[in-house]
Design a binder for these strands. Structure first.
Lengths: 190, 190
DNA sequence: GCCAAAACCTAATAATATTAGGCAAATGCC
DNA sequence: GGCATTTGCCTAATATTATTAGGTTTTGGC
């Protein structure tokens, strides 16, 4: 009989799609095997374990998002850059909820360090170039931006903002306005 | 032989402790049964399913956190209240990572509506009384505060801030300063 | 002490993860 | 083009977990 043509890459890609459909927490090797019309044991020639698959999906998501972020930031500065980066995160979370969740899967330190995850903070730091912030305020600002982007995306994804008006899009725009105002006038502790 | 004295409440409580130890995603009825030195099937007299246990842990966490938030806000206003509420969230996430994660377990709408979850946004809204914001800016601000609290707590819990200086505590203080400054001078879109 | 209800158990089924070892299909060498 | 080898996928077996059905034993009220 014809072969399915499994490869590590194809499994990772299909795993990412599966995650977007059923949620990262609910992906299984069984479901993935079913999708390829293949027996579960066959997958073990390409991934070493369920954990391995999840790790690969995580790395894929981190890379995809870093690439989109880098592209979005090209040629933009200040508020333009801030809005672009924020939208990349939010849009990715909305379109790819499973992959977005994958990015918060715990990786072992070496894997994490070799991942595109490190690019994320670098890219966030890059948009601060347009604002006048020096260390250590830059680091504080990077962490605050990361918190807002991640927090908003997560809460919105969970439906936390969908049961009341105004529409969450409105709050998002205002959050970006607020962050811009903040970076433009970063408070110094007294 | 002596009986273990299982009740729904004790299972929920032990489940919450287990979640704090191994992570909410990794709690199992088997592990819980082991902890009580009881067979797994015995648990089904007190919880209807694994899903049911998780739901109960979620409700417990939402309630605990709402109670702590309410207590922390009593007699405080403005920045004092903001700091107190933020710290309640952050401290809870640090001390009870499993329960904190439980709060983002998907509940069916009716359960969610009957939960202490609704109190959270009310309490957040309460601290805005000290600042001069009217609708719909209040809602935008509630959502922003929620995003920062949740985002920061999550990223810190994952160790996202632990591999670089300054210490995350410092960034947290500065984030609260920033939010206070923002609420005091909420930008209007042009 | 007796007896109902409650608490816990054994047994059986099903889904998933994982390992070991087998056969067949594709690949490369002559 | 035929053959050997590698590789891809399979069957089979084991372990863990979730869940249901139905059987005992404990316990508290009388």
């Amino acid at each position: 009989m014809a072969r399915a043509g499994l490869t590590t890459e194809r499994l990772t890609q299909a795993g990412a799609e599966l995650a977007d459909e059923v949620g990262f927490d609910h992906i299984t090797l069984s479901a993935l095997a079913r999708r390829f019309e293949v027996k579960v044991a066959s997958l073990y020639a390409h991934v070493t374990s369920s954990q391995d698959l999840k790790t690969r999906i995580t790395l894929l998501a981190l890379q995809e998002l870093a690439d989109r972020a880098a592209e979005a930031l090209a040629g933009r500065a200040e508020k333009d850059a801030l809005i672009a980066l924020g939208n990349v995160y939010r849009d990715y979370a909305r379109k790819h909820p499973g992959r977005y969740a994958a990015m918060h899967f715990r990786l072992d330190p070496e894997t994490a360090n070799a991942s595109a995850g490190v690019k994320h903070s670098q890219l966030t730091r890059a948009i601060l170039r347009g604002y006048q912030l020096s260390e250590p305020d830059q680091t504080h600002a990077v962490r605050l931006l990361g918190s807002v982007f991640h927090g908003f995306a997560t809460l919105e994804m969970e439906g936390g903002f969908s049961h009341s008006l105004p529409a969450s899009q409105e709050s998002w725009s205002r959050a970006l306005d607020a962050l811009d105002a903040l970076l433009r006038n970063w408070p110094t502790p007294k």
